[in-house]
Every structure is written in C-alpha cells, then in structure tokens.
Design a protein around this nucleic acid. Sequence first.
DNA 1: TTCTTATTTTACCGACCGGTCGGTAGACAA
DNA 2: TTGTCTACCGACCGGTCGGTAAAATAAGAA
Lengths: 187, 187
Amino acid sequence: MNREMILEASAQIIRQKGYHAASMQDIADAVKLQKASLYHHFSSKQDILLALLDQALDLLIERVSVVLSRELPADEKLRQAMREYLGCLEEHAALASVLLLEHRSLNPEYHDRHIPRRDRFERLWRDLIQEGVDSGLFHTADPAMTARALLGVMNWTITWYRSDGRYSSGQISDNFSALFLDGLRER
Amino acid sequence: MNREMILEASAQIIRQKGYHAASMQDIADAVKLQKASLYHHFSSKQDILLALLDQALDLLIERVSVVLSRELPADEKLRQAMREYLGCLEEHAALASVLLLEHRSLNPEYHDRHIPRRDRFERLWRDLIQEGVDSGLFHTADPAMTARALLGVMNWTITWYRSDGRYSSGQISDNFSALFLDGLRER
DNA sequence: TTCTTATTTTACCGACCGGTCGGTAGACAA
DNA sequence: TTGTCTACCGACCGGTCGGTAAAATAAGAA
C-alpha cells in the first residue's frame, strides 16, 4: 500500500459522497486497511484532500500547457486545448470532481496555499484568449471574463457528463469550441 | 420563529460550510433556538435541504418563465432570460449556492423527487434554443447540449462571483449573452 | 541471525453528530 | 377552571467522527 493507491480510492469515495460525508473509515475499507493505518501515510484527512487537489491541478496544468505551447493560430489552439482539458476531466473523472467541487472543503490555511495554483491554471486560458485578441483573431471586452465563461462551460460538464452517454468528450468539446468561436446566431 | 426564517439561516450556513459540515447545532445557534426546537418545524436535516432546493427551484422557474413568455425574438429573449437568471442567482446567492452545489447531498429518495424539477428548468432553456433554431435565428447541432453550455457558464459564476467585484451581474450577463450569440471569433 | 526501519494492527479517546425524550410556558377556547 | 394547541427547552440517546498511542508484524540490511 502506498500514497497513490490511497489517493485513488479517496478520490472515488470523496467524489461519490463529498468530502465531509466521506469518512476515514470509508477510505480505509476501500483500500482494505485499518483506519489508523491511513495516518501512517497521511497526517490528516485534510492532508489527503490537499494531495488530491495538488495532484489534479498538476496534471491539468501540465496537459493543457503542452497544447498551448504548440505553434498554432489561437482559434485552433483553443479548440485543441478544450479537447485536451475535457478529455482529461473524463479520463480522471474522480480526481477532477474532487478538484472542482471539493476545494471549498479545504481548511483556510490549506486553501490559501491552493488558490495561487488555481489562478495559474485560469491564467493559461486568459493568456490564450489574449493571444487571440492580439493576433486579431478574437474580439472580447474582457479576456478574464471570457476565460471564466470558457471554464464554466467545461467545468460544469462534470455535473452531468456520463461516459456512457450519447456523446464522447471529444464530440462535446468540438461542439463547445464551435459554439464559443462562432456563436449561436445564424449568419 | 417560523420555517422561512430557519430556511434563510440554513441557506447561509449550508452555503458557507456545505451540507454535511453544517450541523443542526449551527443552524439552531443562528436562529437562537435550541437544536431540539428545529425538529418542531422540520422533521429532519434532509427535510430542510429539500425545502431549500424546492424553494430555490420554484423561484428560478417562475422568474425565468416570466421572461420566456414575452413576445420577443429568440436572441433578445435569451439576453433577457440570462440577465434575469444571473440577477436571481445574485439576489438569492445563498439559496442558489445550495441548489447548485448541495443537491448531491439529498438522500436517494428525496433526490429522485427533485430531479424532475431540475429537468423542467433545463427544458426551459432548451426550448428557448429550439425556438431560436425554428425561427431561423440560431443554428446549433444539438439544442440540449447548447442549453447545458449556457447553464454551465451561468451556474459556474456562483463559484467565483462576488457582489463587491468589478462587474455587476447585469454586466456579466450582457457579456455572456453577447459571447454566446456572436462568438469569440473576430469578423 | 540480529538489528533497524517501515508498515499495519488493536484498542482507545474526547468531541460531536442527528435525533428523541418528557416536560413547560403561554395563548386561546369552552 | 379545564383542556388543547403551538412553540420551545434541557437532558439525553446510540452512534460515528477524526485522531492517537503503543504493540505487533513485515521487510531489509548487516
């Protein structure tokens, strides 16, 4: 047994029940350990949550950054970045759910340490929008708010997306990127 | 003391702490009652949560429906509906947070009763999109998914919107509706 | 083999959880 | 005066929470 296995099980359980409803006993049962044994690997329940959030954010930042560093026009880069991000949310659904829905359960001190990393991720998207504006491909009144709209659409999918649903994450992201780039209005 | 006052306090506390972290004692303290007295007004903690969700959804359905029943072109109707919805989320921020973030904490039986009402609300938006498509104003591959994108953008605002921030909810909704209607791409 | 370290277990703790109990105070009516 | 109602209270219930201490076991290194 190691930290990674415990984290994986924790993500599943916290995703299902929410952080506060998920007990250390639940996690221990899932990895077939006694509850006390978890405290050999993690100093507290909060420590587990923080590790999950860090892991999730590291993963997403890394994966999206790779796409953003490609030499492409901003619109195509946006399309690919959205595809990568939504694919990542799907592939690591439990981890992603914890990141997006349970970060509010972090203690204040932990939370303060977490926020800058979130901002860094948000800035990736804002910079992409800005890049598009600078190159004359995009127009927007406020790149920061546009980035939040973008993240809102994508993040909200974790509340309804099911991998056995009608559409794959790739189809959904293509749909969303087309909507974002060209709008709903007929022309 | 009556049910409404308890619900109002409950919404504030549950919004802050989350359903499971908010205790009946917390709620009792907030309304200056003994914990036991809460059970004179509500049969259980779940009962409080369900009442909050019902109240929130009733409010939103009513307010948005009024806008949707106006005789307007679909694009203008969308603009006004988004403005109404985001204004409502801001005006009843605590209630809205509970609705959007805590419905997962409902017991299965309660949850099943709640879901159809949520679907009804989502359908309002889907029908509006469809109306725009039928009238030739909108084009979209899948109205249901477009509606979800729309709701995603708006619902996600409760995770970052602060009433003392740079923009009012009206400005944000105008920004979002413009983005949705005409897209990000320069033309 | 023995010593050391890493890992897990058993047994336990105080605090708090949602919820129930019997009972009380006051308003109103018969 | 008596009975009934709403609203509320203090005390308490069994159970679970996150977390701790110390003993037992497993795994390597010498």
